[in-house]
Design a protein around this nucleic acid. Sequence first.
DNA 1: GAAGAATTTGGAATTATTTGCAAGAAAAAA
DNA 2: TTTTTTCTTGCAAATAATTCCAAATTCTTC
Lengths: 256, 256
Amino acid sequence: MLAEERQQRINEHLREKEFCTLKELSDMLKVSVSTVRRDINFLKSTGILRRTHGGARLSEQVEIEGSHPLVPNATVRSELKECIARYCASLIEPGQTVIMDGGSTVFSVARHLVPKHPIVITNSLPISNLYSTYRQVEVHVTGGVVYPRLGVLTGPNAVEGFSKIHADVAIMGAGGLDVQDGVTNTHALLIDMQLAMIRAARKVIFCMDSTKLGAKSLFFLCSADQVQTLVTNDDANPAIVAALRKKGVDVHLVSC
Amino acid sequence: MLAEERQQRINEHLREKEFCTLKELSDMLKVSVSTVRRDINFLKSTGILRRTHGGARLSEQVEIEGSHPLVPNATVRSELKECIARYCASLIEPGQTVIMDGGSTVFSVARHLVPKHPIVITNSLPISNLYSTYRQVEVHVTGGVVYPRLGVLTGPNAVEGFSKIHADVAIMGAGGLDVQDGVTNTHALLIDMQLAMIRAARKVIFCMDSTKLGAKSLFFLCSADQVQTLVTNDDANPAIVAALRKKGVDVHLVSC
DNA sequence: GAAGAATTTGGAATTATTTGCAAGAAAAAA
DNA sequence: TTTTTTCTTGCAAATAATTCCAAATTCTTC
């Protein structure tokens, strides 16, 4: 294998895992730790990663490039989000066509989805950007106007983009899910978009951390019984979970 | 087998695999490693690939700032590019509708364009991403399939996105501009795109550093006399500049 | 078509680079 | 502290690049 190919695979691996040890890379690439160390040092000099003892960590800059508005969120509950994301990715079959929403949780899912070689349809710039270095993932981007803070494409073009397609799965986020008031979101512009996504997908998976259960945002998206699958943490309020299940929602509780 | 046929097969092979070793090609083409090396060196001079130790790598012609950190390319001529970009931005009136191509030079222009509060239409993910934090810039993104490595949206959706609009200016890059052979670019998929952009814009500005004057890439875009405005460095070959001006091109020479 | 020139090809010798290994230094962990 | 792990450094083997040359091929020219 060529040196540069190795370095690219290290880069890709890091983008998925965020952190990894030299031994891990050495095993993966079937080269000595010395060689990995040299590669890592080179990559460090380019600025894409930061060295740690025994390993390397994706440098924040690159993260920001891929997900700028989503970063500040990556604080307290980020571990939990990662667990949800990992689990949610495991629900996807290799090669499936997947619609992906904007939003930080869905973005995390995106990172874990690379090995499944999916065909992705998205209106999220961060997700498009994340995948733009991978050849394994085919990404279709809807057109539309950039909604500044969220990095999401909106408007009639974007909605139209989803009206022409059929996907296996849609992975969605939302601002809140209440048994009475259903799924709600924070931005009116996103609602049309998400409705179009739901219509285009055979199966819809909502990913949200447990703090969003029982919460309400400003704008109504759909009622609770229209949610097919929900992935959340296992510290979710049991009463809400029970009520949702009674409404026919397939609730997956993820433990970390 | 003819040399040219060999080189084309190397090109095709690389487009699939992105990387390959000389031995791999030598086996595939049933010629000696020496010959493969010569072919590779020739292809390198045309710019379609980059050499690495033991092999070759498909060159990411239009390097995306930040997105592909493995390319230390953005060093030598980057100052010159900045000058071109700054000047090119000065040609834009505040509030104009601007179509922006993918490509590193155009990306640099994008950075300088923020104070003009333009309305931007683009198929470039890096540019979309750049502006997604600014509220001053309204960005319309065409839909399409992400072309890996370039971060550009391609395909019929993308072309269609430009067919419906009219813009004041299009800012374009290209792989080469030759007096005889006109404007050429490295990727066939980009050609349709760029043609649609040119059609949609009242005025077309090509930005390219002087090394691209007289250069030829694989795919034909348009003839030299169809270029309205060209912005390049003042170290451009005077003979070429004169010939272009004779053909009616408005050549702007930028000194740093 | 044939002789000669020009080009292309494959290979050998030399030089340069990369890789893996090992011993001592440095840093984390126990 | 000691023990373990990781890092650095120097070195030798493996691998690749460069240069040069001869054989093979193609192109001119008569």
